[in-house]
Structures are given as structure tokens and as C-alpha cells.
């Protein structure tokens, strides 16, 4: 297994108390596999990724438990200097807003080339040539002329391509893309997603795609992990989840996608609001918003149940719902 996150727990110490952002998340990604992590804002999907990368702001953040196994090594036990060598070189991250995530006062060539200077000890000249090569690879037109341009001189889609080029620079074995297309136009979104998927295939990388956009997920992901209030509530192969969700939250998410055959009717919305992380409800965190909630949901935290639809069905399906069978068949 390329990356295995085991029972990860992250807290944030704020003035109002301790926000439990991640409460025992476990997921795994293999080489060549794409895992989509789905969830609303505040579900802990980005915080988990930042903890994996080792770029969590500490303080206020604190990792209170769990393991992050990357190629067999527990990253949380490594020294900062060892982690730094892994960051960017063996695992890389693509951020949401390329305009604010690129340094406004440095040329894109300098920001791309920096990867080779720092991690590979190349000279400025070699690094610059590499930067041009990378820009060609992510299909930025006239790369040779544009290598000395600044981020603000590129369009949104081109900037995100530069972010992708930066992440791919040293051909890492794992890429974490945190909502890579949210800030883009719909047409550009598709182009950027296609490019990312294509390069992932070419380099046989593992990809963690963090998103709240179910439409993006269906095309590129192999597996999905749905997060709610810092926990994984359902994980399954992508096809299975779309066909028949095994958690009421997932079902709610799927039902709230607008569809053409629904025209004129009111769009479904999950009632209520995501929980305050300072006061997560006891039992299943989703219970106040769940149409199927029973007494047990309000007192006991549900474990991740093995979901076996029928004998011989796809394995590796899990749901954190006491009533997963009813949900699956309802």
C-alpha cells in the first residue's frame, strides 16, 4: 500500500475550546489508484490531507493520535528535516486557488525551477530548462516565452496547470489535490481534471482528490470516502456508491445533485447545518439531520460496518450507519 492513514486524530485549540477536526480517520491509497474524499466544508477532509503532507499549522493544530504510513514508514514519527525531503519530492499537493497559492512576486519559472534547485541540487540554468519542459508537459502554449511571466499574467486555468506542473515536477508517487477545480469555470474544470487524470495514469501515481463536487468524482475516482464531522461515514468503489449508497448522509448528498429529468421540481437539500466542531453531537454526528435516526444513533458512535450487499459483491465497502441495510435497499 502506498499510503495508509490509520485512526488519525487532529484537534485545534481555539479560544472557545478544542475543535475536534479529525476523529479517527482511516483510508488507504495504492499506486495508480484515485481516492476521492468527499464532504462539506469543515468535514475534516482538508485537515486530514494537511496532516498527511505535514503542513498543518501547529499550533493551533495538534495531531493527537494515529499513524500516517507512507511506503511503510510512519511519517508522524519522522523528524521535520526527513519529512521536508519527502514533501514535494515523493508526495505533492495541488491547492484550490492557484492565484493565491502561487507567490505573486516570483516568476512561474522561478517557482517551478525551485523544486529542482532545492531537491535535486540543479543550477539555475538547468532548473529553468526543466521549468520550460514542465510547462510544455501541462500544455501551456509558448512555454519558452512565458516562463519569465508572473502568476497574475496567466488565466485561471493556466495558473492551475502551473500548480499541477509544480506538483508533478519531481514525479512524486502520491499527489493530493485539494479541490483543484473549484475556482475554475466549468469548461476549464473538465480540461484540468482530464489533464490531471491523464498525467496520473502516465506516471502511475496515487491520487487523493479532495472535493465536494460529486460530478467531478464520478469520472476520475476509483474509490470514494465520504467524510462527515471528522469521520469517514462511508467508503466504497465509486460505481457502488452512485448505484446504492449505504449511509443516509451519502444518499442525501446524491439526492441533492440537480438532474435534468427533475426540471421544475424543488431541489432536495439535507435539512439542518453541519455540526459545530466544538460541540459534536453524541452518538452518530449526523443524527440531528438524519431522517432515519433512532435512539441508538443518539447515544452510541456507530463503527464502520462491513457492507456486504449480496454474496460475491464487491469487497471493501463500509458504512458507519446502524441501519446501512435499510439505507441500501430503501
Amino acid at each position: 500500500m502506498l499510503l495508509e492513514v490509520r485512526d488519525l486524530q487532529v484537534e485545534f485549540h481555539t479560544r472557545d475550546g478544542v475543535a475536534r477536526a479529525v476523529n479517527g480517520v482511516s483510508y488507504a491509497v495504492d499506486a495508480g489508484e484515485t481516492l476521492a474524499v468527499l464532504g462539506e466544508s469543515g468535514s475534516g477532509k482538508s485537515v486530514t490531507a494537511q496532516a498527511v503532507m505535514g503542513i498543518l499549522d501547529m499550533p493551533p493544530g495538534r495531531i493527537t493520535g494515529g499513524q500516517v504510513l507512507f511506503q511503510g514508514r510512519d511519517l508522524l514519527r519522522l523528524k521535520e528535516e526527513q519529512r521536508r525531503r519527502i514533501r514535494g519530492a515523493e508526495m505533492a499537493m495541488i491547492f484550490q486557488d492557484a492565484l493565491s497559492s502561487l507567490n505573486p512576486v516570483l516568476t512561474v519559472g522561478a517557482q517551478l525551477g525551485e523544486m529542482f534547485i532545492v531537491h535535486r541540487g540543479m543550477s539555475r540554468k538547468q532548473a529553468r530548462a526543466k521549468a520550460v519542459e514542465l510547462m510544455d508537459r501541462v500544455r501551456i502554449p509558448a512555454a519558452r516565452e512565458r516562463v519569465d511571466d508572473y502568476p497574475h499574467q496567466f488565466s485561471g486555468g493556466m495558473r492551475q496547470r502551473i500548480m499541477i506542473a509544480m506538483a508533478l515536477a519531481l514525479e512524486p508517487s502520491l499527489i493530493i489535490a485539494d479541490e483543484p477545480t473549484t475556482a475554475l469555470d466549468v469548461t476549464v474544470q473538465a480540461q484540468v481534471m482530464d489533464l490531471l487524470a491523464e498525467l496520473r495514469r502516465e506516471l502511475n501515481m496515487g491520487l487523493i482528490l479532495i472535493t465536494h463536487d460529486l460530478g467531478v468524482v464520478a469520472d476520475v475516482a476509483d474509490r470514494i470516502a465520504v467524510m462527515y464531522a471528522g469521520r469517514i461515514v462511508e467508503t466504497a468503489p465509486v460505481y457502488e456508491i452512485y448505484r446504492a449508497p449505504a449511509h443516509p448522509y451519502t444518499r442525501g448528498l446524491l439526492r441533492s445533485i440537480p438532474r435534468l429529468d427533475q426540471k421544475g421540481r424543488e431541489l432536495y437539500a439535507i435539512k439542518g447545518l453541519p455540526p459545530n466542531l466544538l460541540r459534536i453531537p453524541p452518538g452518530c454526528a449526523f443524527n440531528p439531520r438524519c431522517p432515519m435516526a433512532q435512539d441508538v444513533c443518539r447515544t452510541e458512535v456507530p463503527p464502520l460496518f462491513e457492507v456486504a450487499e449480496a454474496p460475491g459483491a464487491a469487497e471493501g465497502r463500509r458504512s458507519a450507519c446502524y441501519f446501512w441495510e435499510e439505507t441500501l435497499h430503501g
Partner: peptide
């Protein structure tokens, strides 16, 4: 964000 990116690049 760009400082976070710089950290994520392993600088």
C-alpha cells in the same frame, strides 16, 4: 496560501 505552498514544496 503561497507560504503554505512553499512549505508543501519541501523548501
Amino acid at each position: 496560501d503561497y507560504v503554505r505552498t512553499a512549505v508543501a514544496k519541501g523548501l
